[in-house]
Design a protein around this nucleic acid. Sequence first.
DNA 1: CGTAAGCTTGAGATTAGTCAACCCGAGTGG
DNA 2: CCACTCGGGTTGACTAATCTCAAGCTTACG
Lengths: 255, 255
Amino acid sequence: MTSRHILGPLLDRQISCSECSLKKFCLVRAIEKADMEKLTHFLNPNQLLRRRDHLFRQGTRLENLYVVKSGSLKSYASTEDGLEQVVGFYFSGDIIGLDGLGTRLHHTSAIALETTVVCAIPVTRMEDLWRSLPRLHQEMYRAVGNEIARDEDMFILLAQRSAEERLATFLLSLSHRFHEHGFSGKEFTLSMAHQDIASFLGLTPQTFSRVFTALKNEGVIAATQRRIHINDLEELREAAKLCAPCHLKQTLKVA
Amino acid sequence: MTSRHILGPLLDRQISCSECSLKKFCLVRAIEKADMEKLTHFLNPNQLLRRRDHLFRQGTRLENLYVVKSGSLKSYASTEDGLEQVVGFYFSGDIIGLDGLGTRLHHTSAIALETTVVCAIPVTRMEDLWRSLPRLHQEMYRAVGNEIARDEDMFILLAQRSAEERLATFLLSLSHRFHEHGFSGKEFTLSMAHQDIASFLGLTPQTFSRVFTALKNEGVIAATQRRIHINDLEELREAAKLCAPCHLKQTLKVA
DNA sequence: CGTAAGCTTGAGATTAGTCAACCCGAGTGG
DNA sequence: CCACTCGGGTTGACTAATCTCAAGCTTACG
């Protein structure tokens, strides 16, 4: 509502959560069918963004949390010295904006990587929402807990893993994520630029490119531009050096 | 309750939140005086840990969230290859255990760095707690939002800052934290080992030591063992290279 | 007092970053 | 329709930061 000017036109508002194709992955999964209409009432469903549209900007008031319905976004922080750090990628089912709940100001900016649809949850109505649908609560804390756990996994990745391990881990987590959502885990298209991944992984674009090329040369993956094909999943796992249960399942914010 | 065997004896259970010296910093600050007794009912207040006592271990069931009342803890993740990564330090007022809310399993281990007192919030009673004290809610989301924002700040630190910048940032954030709680921001004692800080900052103990020594030689700080004295706050800020508002206020999980 | 853990220091190896050139494809305008 | 430009991506040569290995020191504590 408030950031309408940077958003595309709203899509068909009629679609309720109960009809939403995402209900298996969204917060909504905790909700009884009967309550879904109630929920729909609290949301601003189906806001459309085009590639490069900002969903919100660092430092602005937190008006909504968003659930990604389709498409993808990245969030990034700008530092005073002009650098940008990508801090997360978001795909369908992910909640975006949580980092603003502390200060009620967005702590990062979020921008669509492709044509993307999100549902907005106005924070001013969250209290009512919880009251009206206490089960949602639990689901919300689940989401929050997963996000924090993922962030901690990222610490490990950034703090003690090599460039190759970071990239391999990233590809695996993407693969896992796509698979989870019923797509191929072996072949997929990146919606983000290589340099976004590099930033996210704490690497320069050059180092990213070298490691990426190396993986291709070793035959572990095949790739043209942003189209990725994983040839040897085992080898990729090897390269990622993560067999621990806690990592394979949910690593990175992209998971 | 469940982990009593690794916990020290319980202290005087009589102390209620309204008498607690921490109420300015704890979740409780959102609560009306009249409701505090109600809250006390939900808690397991004042569990005592000695140095090196575990509060919980990675992979075990999440039974409680904890608020640190006094003392300090570190949380760390163990990877399959035997490495340990410190992912956070916690001081009075901090909530610990949030990373387990997703899976209901602790995602990290937590261990006391000194004699420490915590209040336990049983997760099984959280639903009741929210119902009974809806205002607590908001405070909880505030805490969660701050934690996520801090994690994102850590990404930047780990992804693109030099060893010196990381250490300087860490010291500043400690200083800020102590100051906030009414202690001196210029002189304080570290409760964690140097190697814990090194791990947290993604450095080897050797690199940490070199940078630490350098800061001492430059006269920016003075330190004997774990006693720190900040001589030149401006210089330290310089070394940290963070002037952006979002960073100075709340950086790192220690803030 | 003796041991162990934590911390420091040095020398050398290694990884990733920097600087710079070049390539490629998409979109633009002549 | 083609040349131009620009952003993104690649590659090479060199540099610098951090890690590794190794030894020695200091402190804490039984």
